[in-house]
């Protein structure tokens, strides 16, 4: 009997683990990668994403900063100017707002301001979205603010494998990336092999998560599992729904989205962010501009209500769930 060195096999892993592994591998591969933020060192981050990094790479590479988001991102700018590749952790979506000026006035446009002489390879990790029972200011969907800022790349994974692959690609990018981590998927498990992580498509590539023929659900991040569940439930209604996971909001993959909608002839955009001025309006407009003659019905949006994020005991009424998605699908003018 011959013994073969057992290849580490894929086993259940969480998105949080995959993100931590991506940071670790990026730091091991590239000595210019520095992780910085509030509680990222000794504690390993409030979500434990950076667990073990300070121990393995030292506190100069994984740094507990003073509690000041503008200062964290502002100093990261200077570090990037000197050739480092900072990965900044913003503790929660709504805690990232003090850093907005640095992000918008400097990070997003430094490449452009300097005619390409000084791009800033900074990754800003932001845990975002609701559904975790968080109190006020812990559950915002802030992606529309970032999407509206030219120069930023905006990425959000929905699976364990994408979390690893997209974070590695974001850190390797020479452009600044706002990496939005759907915090309610942190503990979602998937079969994944941390010793042999597979690469993912380049940033800016959407993926068809579930092929279908009746209508396309266009979604991203925390709403991807909701849409997949809705698609399963829709089978009993006789609808075969396609689910497109955008994976990056900027750059936006018009080609994949438009190809899907041209095939199905119907589309619903689904996200937690508010509808008014939210990503869905932009996406619906882009789809309409490109697929008008293929559409059997107006593009609909299923979004969070246009309200400040609700208290945790009421958040289930706010978050787009399976029923709200199916209600929208039902309104796609099937009787014509």
């Amino acid at each position: 009997m011959t013994t073969v060195a057992a290849k580490p096999a894929a086993k259940p892993a969480t998105m949080a683990q995959a993100l931590g592994r991506a940071l670790r591998d990026a730091m091991a591969d590239d000595p210019t990668v520095h992780v910085m933020g509030e509680d990222v060192g000794t504690l390993g981050g409030v979500f434990r994403i950076t667990d073990g990094l300070a121990k393995e790479f030292g506190e100069d590479r994984c740094t507990d900063t003073p509690l000041a988001e503008a200062g964290i991102l502002g100093t990261a700018v200077g570090m990037a100017m000197y050739g480092l590749r900072p990965v900044v952790e913003m503790q929660f979506d709504a805690f990232a707002y003090p850093a907005f000026e640095q992000l918008i006035s400097h990070v997003a446009r430094m490449r452009n301001r300097t005619r390409g002489a000084m791009p800033l390879p900074i990754t800003v990790r932001v845990p975002y979205g609701g559904g975790i029972g968080g109190v006020e200011h812990h559950s915002d969907s802030s992606e529309a603010y970032y999407m509206a800022t030219p120069g930023l790349t905006v990425v959000t994974p929905a699976t364990v494998a994408d979390a690893y692959g997209l974070l590695r690609r974001s850190i390797a990018s020479d452009d600044p990336v706002v990496f939005l981590e759907p915090k309610r998927l942190y503990w979602a498990k998937d079969s994944w092999n941390p010793e042999a992580p597979t690469d993912v498509d380049p940033i800016g590539t959407a993926v068809v998560r579930r092929p279908g023929t009746s209508a396309t659900l266009i979604t991203y991040g925390p709403s991807v599992p909701v849409c997949l569940e809705a698609a399963e439930a829709a089978r009993s209604e006789g609808w075969d729904l396609e689910v497109v996971d955008l994976r990056s909001l900027v750059p936006f993959d018009d080609a994949t989205v438009a190809a899907s909608v041209r095939r199905t002839g119907r589309a619903v955009v689904v996200h937690e962010s508010g509808g008014f001025g939210g990503p869905g309006g932009e996406i619906a407009a882009r789809v309409t501009e490109r697929c008008f003659h293929h559409l059997e019905a107006p593009v609909l949006r299923v979004a969070g209500f246009d309200i400040p994020y609700p208290p945790p005991m009421l958040e289930r009424h706010h978050l787009p769930g399976v029923d709200r998605v199916l209600d929208a699908v039902a309104r796609l003018q099937w009787d014509q």
Partner: peptide, 9 residues
């Protein structure tokens, strides 16, 4: 803060 970050780096 840029100056601080650069000096720190």
């Amino acid at each position: 803060p840029h100056a601080v970050g650069l000096a720190h780096a």
